[in-house]
């Protein structure tokens, strides 16, 4: 099917909470098609949902049937607790499959949701990591390996395929009404922390991540971008503002208690992105979240 500027936007991983948020914002402006192996409860009527595993051959039928002009690829598992092999195949094989289809069907825009953890939490990191920094996340943290691989694959695609506007977003810890590891942590009734460490943490509200994706879909936007929310804050202060008890736990020396912080200047300068939600907004989300455990994801 030839490229159609009026075509639909495909959102992979649409049934996750962030995916649903993206869909609810996006479907008011454009035709949205969803792809997820999970059902999509509460789906807006004008959103077409394909309940297929991203690794299946049938995904190609979707591209043949729908006129896709852009893909928002967020079918990437960020939770390291899942089965490693499953993890790897969804992330790496899934991403490869999607990018192959993008190329084959002449899609002109693809937005890949990576994450700022790909730089790796290292003691010798500079305070604010920029986009050109090598991705050393997998060096010591094996569970980050496939996320790094996905990011690098999308990067290669970006440079090899000039006719596709590829955008790789590396947001900091996503919080708000989502099931990200950071968000699940902030919902705990008490917070385990590594004794003797109090790293600076950067968070971004899911609403702002959605805004970042919308901005990335604009014609002409292309490249790799860190996406940051409000200024960083020491973890302990964030937790204390949320107001539940901290439980210090002795951790292994030298690797524990480190985060990486990134510089969001490029996205701000080149795309004009400014986060709307402040630390206070983020804290308010979790103040009232004590009693509710993290909702099941699938």
């Amino acid at each position: 099917m030839p490229y159609d500027p009026e075509g639909a936007v495909l959102v992979t991983g649409i049934a996750g909470r962030l995916g649903r948020l993206v869909a609810s914002r996006l479907h008011r402006e454009v035709q949205v098609v969803g792809l997820d192996r999970r059902p999509f409860p509460g789906r807006p009527k004008d959103v077409k949902h394909y309940q297929i595993d991203i690794r299946r051959k049938k995904v190609e039928e979707l591209f043949e049937r729908e006129r896709i002009r852009a893909v928002v690829h967020m079918a990437i598992v960020h939770d390291p607790r899942l089965d490693a092999e499953e993890h790897h195949s969804v992330n790496v094989i899934g991403t490869r499959r999607v990018l192959d289809l993008v190329l084959k069907h002449g899609v002109r825009k693809v937005v890949v949701l990576s994450s700022a953890t790909v730089y790796g939490p290292r003691a010798d990191n500079t305070q604010f990591i920029t986009e050109d920094t090598p991705l050393l996340g997998a060096e010591r943290h094996g569970d980050l390996r496939d996320l790094v691989q996905v990011d690098l694959y999308a990067n290669t695609f970006l440079w090899k395929q000039p006719e596709v506007e590829t955008v790789v977003l590396r947001p900091v810890h996503i919080v708000g009404d989502v099931g990200s590891p950071a968000s699940n942590y902030l919902r705990l009734p008490r917070f385990p922390v590594v004794m003797g460490f109090d790293p600076m943490i950067q968070v971004i509200h899911a609403e702002d991540v959605v805004a970042a994706m919308m901005a990335s879909l604009r014609p002409g936007v292309r490249g790799v971008f860190n996406v940051v929310g409000p200024d960083g804050i020491p973890l302990s202060r964030l937790l204390r503002e949320i107001g539940r008890p901290l439980v210090p736990i002795p951790g292994p020396l030298l690797t524990a208690g480190l985060f990486c912080m990134v510089d969001g200047e490029r996205f701000a300068r080149d795309v004009g992105f400014r986060p709307r939600l402040s630390l206070r907004d983020v804290i308010a989300v979790y103040r009232d979240a004590a009693a509710q455990p993290a909702r099941a994801r699938r």
Binding site: A123, D124, N125, T126, Q127, V194, M195, G196, F197, D198, P199, M200, P234, L253, L254, T255, G257, L258
Partner: peptide, 20 residues
């Protein structure tokens, strides 16, 4: 560069404005 990996010392340095 090893200071951020040291317990207690790391955040003492950070809060008092010392950077890597």
């Amino acid at each position: 560069k090893f200071v951020p990996a040291l317990p207690f010392v790391s955040y003492f340095m950070s809060r008092t404005g010392q950077v890597v």
